[in-house]
Amino acid sequence: MAKAKLTPVHFFSHGSTMMLGEESESAAYWKRCGDEALANGIKGVVIMGAHWDCLNDEIQVATNPNPSKSPVAYVHPSKYVDYKLNPDLPTANRCISMLRDAGFNCNGNPTFDWIHDTYLVLIRMFPSACPPTTIISMNARFDPHFHLKMGSTLRPLRLENYLLIGSGGAVHNLYRNKWTSMLRYRDSFAQEIPPDREMLEFRQAVQDVMEKNSGPGLRRGLCRLMKHPQFRDAHATDDHFMSALFVAGAAGDWDDEEQGKGRLKAETWELVNMCNSQYTIGEWVSA
């Protein structure tokens, strides 16, 4: 019996705002992923970022029909101001229903404006036109198992040709970044000194988990990384790692074991200590 086709799932490290304005290996890979998604006729994108979280036990889904974009620093407005956003309200309402049915306290947010953690990636992936897109919030308690369940709840959308994306960071600690070259020279890619040992070790730990595990093993491995000795060095706050857990939930079912392990497809270091690793789990299957 043939297995059902599942869309791939991406965990993208969006990095600093300058990733929108400057060319990089990561930006080139995002574009390639967008081209492949369009070639395979995706119905839309469902994305969890790293800059929107809700208090108590609530999560939200963006339902603003005409969202604005939060401005970004160090990027010329021509790179993003005229890009037309495309909120997918029917899919947003469907996601709300799916999450509520799974026991989540989930509500729509009709006033939410999009933030660079999501539209930065979308502009790079789909520069000609934004596909129908649904944005899902995090929860501010940053429980890894909670966000795993969010991903697993929305996993069936992969069977309907939706593309699920987590936009966060493999190594993202603003307090450990070296900001001088960006502030003085508008250059976030300068690496005058090597990254700190803790950043290198955690970056490698993420790659080991992503590339050596699949299915439920991937979920367990990414949850354990939050107890890694260098996790707090690599992530001063938990927000940029939650989308990795969302991705693991969406691509970590028993049936996902046959889809293959995650693959590191591109990587861009910024500000000495920020590692923007780009991972894809699964692949497009030809008809």
Rank of each mutant, 00 (worst) to 15 (best):
K5F: 05
P8G: 10
H10E: 01
H10R: 03
F11S: 01
G15F: 12
S16C: 08
T17K: 15
M18V: 13
S24R: 15
S26Q: 08
A27K: 11
W30L: 13
R32G: 03
C33N: 08
G34V: 05
D35N: 12
L38H: 01
A39F: 14
I42D: 02
K43G: 00
V45A: 04
I47M: 15
M48F: 12
G49E: 05
W52H: 06
C54G: 06
D57I: 07
E58R: 00
Q60T: 07
N64D: 02
S68G: 01
S68P: 00
S70Q: 11
A73V: 12
A73W: 03
A73F: 04
P77D: 01
Y80F: 10
Y80E: 09
Y80Q: 11
V81H: 09
Y83V: 11
K84G: 04
N86C: 15
D88C: 07
D88V: 02
N93E: 07
R94H: 14
C95M: 08
C95T: 06
S97R: 03
L99Q: 05
C106W: 09
C106Y: 14
C106R: 14
C106G: 12
G108D: 04
P110A: 10
F112N: 00
W114K: 02
W114H: 06
T118M: 06
L120F: 13
L120Y: 12
S128L: 02
C130A: 15
C130I: 05
P131N: 10
P131G: 15
T133N: 08
S137T: 08
R141C: 07
R141G: 07
F146E: 00
K149G: 03
M150Q: 09
E160T: 12
L163P: 01
L164V: 07
L164C: 08
L164N: 06
G166Y: 10
S167T: 07
G168K: 11
G168V: 08
G169V: 09
G169F: 03
A170C: 14
N173P: 04
L174R: 13
Y175N: 04
W179N: 01
T180C: 14
Y185M: 02
Y185R: 00
Y185T: 04
R186M: 07
S188C: 12
S188W: 04
Q191P: 02
P195T: 15
M199Y: 06
L200F: 12
L200W: 12
F202C: 10
R203G: 13
R203E: 15
Q204H: 11
D208K: 05
D208N: 05
V209S: 14
V209T: 10
M210D: 02
M210S: 05
E211N: 09
K212F: 08
N213C: 14
G215K: 06
G217A: 07
L218S: 05
R219M: 01
G221R: 00
G221Y: 04
L222Q: 10
L222W: 09
M226I: 15
K227T: 09
P229M: 15
D233G: 03
T237R: 05
D238G: 07
M242Y: 12
M242D: 03
F246H: 02
A248T: 11
A250F: 07
D253K: 00
W254P: 05
D255V: 01
E258W: 05
K261P: 05
K261I: 13
G262C: 09
R263E: 12
R263I: 12
R263W: 10
K265S: 10
K265C: 13
T268F: 01
W269L: 07
V272T: 10
M274A: 10
S277Y: 11
Q278G: 06
Q278W: 14
T280D: 11
I281Q: 00
